[in-house]
Computed example of a mutant assay.
Amino acid sequence: MHLVRVVWAGGVTTVNNEEPGDLERNADSVTVKNANGSTADVTPFALGDLADNDNNHELCLDTADIPVSVSFSAGYLTDPNNDLNPATTVDVI
């Protein structure tokens, strides 16, 4: 199992001003690399570090493969100005 902490530039809530839930979790994708070097995209089985009004949350992965990047679909989350998030892909460091 792996946990990937994602940190946003500002606060992060849903378009309804709620904490992210299953809808947003299913819009997340983590690319993982297995022992033979091939990659696959997985969806987190849960989100953690919620309900604390900060700018990060945790993607909980049910795989031993190594996370290499995270992608978020556009339009699911908002910042403190209620701006919708763009489609984003970042490398895991």
Rank of each mutant, 00 (worst) to 15 (best):
V42E: 08
H2N: 14
P80C: 09
C60G: 04
D65R: 07
R25S: 04
T78M: 07
V92D: 00
N53Q: 12
L47K: 01
D62S: 09
N16T: 14
D22W: 13
T63H: 06
V6C: 13
P44R: 04
L3F: 07
N36P: 02
D52K: 10
G48A: 08
A27D: 05
E58P: 01
L3P: 00
A9Y: 06
A46L: 08
D41A: 09
N82K: 05
F45D: 09
V70T: 10
T88C: 10
W8V: 03
N26M: 10
V32C: 10
D28R: 00
P80G: 10
E19L: 03
G75A: 09
V6Y: 01
N34M: 02
N16M: 12
N16Q: 07
S73Q: 11
V70W: 08
I93Y: 05
T78D: 05
N53L: 13
V30T: 14
D62P: 00
V92T: 07
V70G: 07
F72D: 00
K33C: 14
N34V: 13
D65S: 15
L61A: 07
D41T: 14
P67K: 03
A40G: 10
E58H: 10
V32I: 15
N53I: 10
S73L: 08
A64M: 02
D91G: 13
N81E: 15
N34I: 08
V6L: 03
L77K: 00
S38N: 15
H2Q: 02
Y76F: 03
V30Y: 03
A87V: 15
P44V: 07
R5M: 04
G48Q: 02
P80F: 13
E19P: 01
L59R: 09
